[in-house]
Measured scan of single mutants.
Amino acid sequence: MQIFVKTLTGKTITSEVEPSDTIENVKAKIQDKEGIPPDQQRLIFAGKQLEDGRTLSDYNIQKESTLHLVLR
């Protein structure tokens, strides 16, 4: 499924993921596309910071959901 990751600069990254993918996994995909190390990434969805060990389905993230990427 496709999800969108919006950066603070307003850029939107499209990523191909599975509901069973972990947040860590998603951060790795963002690193592949943007070159941002996962340890600098914080992903936010519905006002919550997403934890690395959890999966997209844990957070009820569905296709075409938009996550927000904040850098630390």
Rank of each mutant, 00 (worst) to 15 (best):
G53E: 10
F4K: 06
L43N: 01
I36G: 03
S57Y: 10
I44N: 05
Q40R: 11
D52V: 05
K27F: 07
S15E: 13
D21T: 10
R72H: 11
P38I: 15
V17L: 05
P37H: 10
L69S: 01
G35T: 03
D58P: 00
A28I: 13
T22L: 11
N60E: 07
V17D: 01
K27M: 13
D32E: 13
V5M: 04
T22C: 03
E34I: 15
Q40D: 10
T14H: 06
E64Y: 14
H68L: 15
N25F: 11
S20E: 09
T66Y: 07
T9G: 13
Q41H: 06
V17Y: 06
L50Q: 01
L67T: 00
E24Q: 12
T7S: 07
T14L: 12
F45P: 01
T22D: 03
L8H: 14
L71W: 09
G35N: 07
I61Q: 01
R54N: 09
D58G: 03
G53L: 07
G35R: 05
E24L: 14
S57L: 10
K63Q: 12
A28L: 15
L8I: 12
K33L: 13
R54G: 06
N60P: 02
E34H: 11
S65I: 04
Q62G: 12
T9A: 12
I3F: 01
T7H: 06
A46K: 14
A46H: 13
P38N: 07
P19G: 07
Q2D: 06
V5A: 02
I36S: 04
G10M: 04
K11W: 11
T9S: 13
D21K: 02
T7I: 13
V26Q: 01
G10F: 04
Y59P: 01
L67M: 05
L71N: 08
S65C: 04
Q49W: 14
D21G: 03
I13L: 09
Q62T: 14
K6T: 10
T12L: 13
D58L: 03
I23N: 01
T14W: 08
L8S: 13
T9W: 15
I36K: 03
K33G: 07
K29N: 05
D32K: 13
M1W: 11
E34L: 15
E34M: 15
T55W: 03
P19H: 07
T9P: 04
V5T: 03
T12G: 03
T7P: 05
Q62S: 10
I36R: 03
S15K: 05
Y59S: 02
D58Y: 15
K48R: 11
G10Y: 03
G35L: 04
D39N: 11
I13N: 02
K29I: 12
I23D: 02
L50W: 02
E24H: 11
D52H: 05
D39K: 10
K29T: 07
P19E: 08
Q40E: 10
D39E: 12
Q62N: 10
L43G: 00
I3G: 00
I61R: 01
E51K: 09
P38H: 12
Y59V: 01
S57P: 02
G10I: 02
N60A: 07
L8N: 12
A46D: 13
P38A: 15
G47K: 04
R72I: 15
E18F: 14
D32G: 09
Q2K: 14
I3S: 01
Q41E: 02
F4I: 07
E64V: 03
G10S: 03
L8A: 14
P37N: 08
K27R: 05
I30H: 02
K6P: 01
I23R: 01
I23E: 02
F45C: 02
I44H: 10
Q41G: 05
I13T: 03
Q40K: 11
S20G: 11
R42E: 13
L69I: 05
F45Q: 02
K63E: 12
V17H: 12
V70I: 13
V70G: 06
G47F: 05
Q2M: 14
I13W: 12
L56A: 02
S20P: 03
K6I: 14
I23C: 03
R42A: 11
L67N: 00
E51S: 08
P37I: 06
R54D: 04
K27H: 02
F4V: 06
R42K: 13
D39R: 10
I3C: 02
I23S: 02
T12A: 04
E64W: 14
M1C: 04
S15L: 15
G35W: 03
Q49F: 14
Q31R: 14
S20C: 07
K6L: 13
V70D: 05
R42Y: 13
K11N: 07
L69H: 01
L8E: 14
N60T: 04
L71E: 07
R42V: 15
K29Y: 11
I44R: 05
T66V: 14
K6N: 05
I61D: 01
I23G: 00
S57V: 07
N60S: 08
T9F: 13
Q49S: 10
Q2E: 09
G53F: 11
I13K: 02
L69P: 00
T55Y: 05
S20Y: 11
S65A: 13
L50P: 00
K29C: 04
G47M: 04
S57I: 08
K63R: 11
